[in-house]
């Protein structure tokens, strides 16, 4: 597949308020850079992430979606990330079935102390999605202006 050299993917990162959003802040504090295509949406807990949001992102032209939450056992709401983990497992296998490459979605546990991990994860993820090229499978072209 031919990839436009100037093309960069659109990445939506859902970060839980307590760990991962703080981890993203920390990578900012430490000036650890990651690609600007990553746009973060703050949610209270990883369990707030409705699979619909991910489908919506792909429909609107996102090329990759990543969910970051507290490490298992560390959830601010005790069990939220366990629900998120199960739901995403189901959703990702369905997306795989639909032909969305597995590399376009990811769940990563990032604590408030792991600024470096956040930046490294984003760098890796953007690289992986860039290698895949544009997401056309679920994109709804009626949404394009």
């Amino acid at each position: 597949m031919q990839v436009d050299k100037n093309w960069t993917p659109t990445i939506v990162a859902f970060c839980c308020n307590w760990c991962s959003y703080a981890g993203a802040d920390l990578s900012g504090n430490n000036r650890l850079s990651y690609p600007a295509n990553v746009k973060i949406i703050r949610i209270p807990c990883s369990c707030r992430l409705n699979p619909m949001f991910i489908l919506r992102a792909f429909q609107r032209g996102a090329d990759g979606v990543i969910l970051c939450g507290c490490h298992p056992g560390d959830c601010h709401y005790t069990t939220g990330n366990y629900y998120a983990r199960r739901r995403m497992t189901l959703l990702f296998s369905m997306l795989d079935y639909l032909g969305i490459e597995k590399e376009r979605t990811r769940v990563e546990w990032v604590s408030a102390a792991e600024g470096a991990k956040f930046a490294a994860t984003m760098n890796e993820f953007v690289e992986a999605v860039t290698a895949l090229g544009e997401n056309k499978r679920l994109e709804d072209f009626r949404c394009k202006q």
Binding site: V12, R48, A57, G80
Partner: peptide, 29 residues
């Protein structure tokens, strides 16, 4: 306000004030 219930609800009746489905979708859009 964790929002676990909002995703569990099969009819989409549950929503989270301040982080509603429509608000997050609007951000995604």
């Amino acid at each position: 306000g964790c929002g676990a219930c909002t995703v569990a609800c099969p009819s989409g009746a549950m929503d989270l004030l301040g982080f509603s489905n429509r608000q997050i979708m609007a951000e995604v859009d």
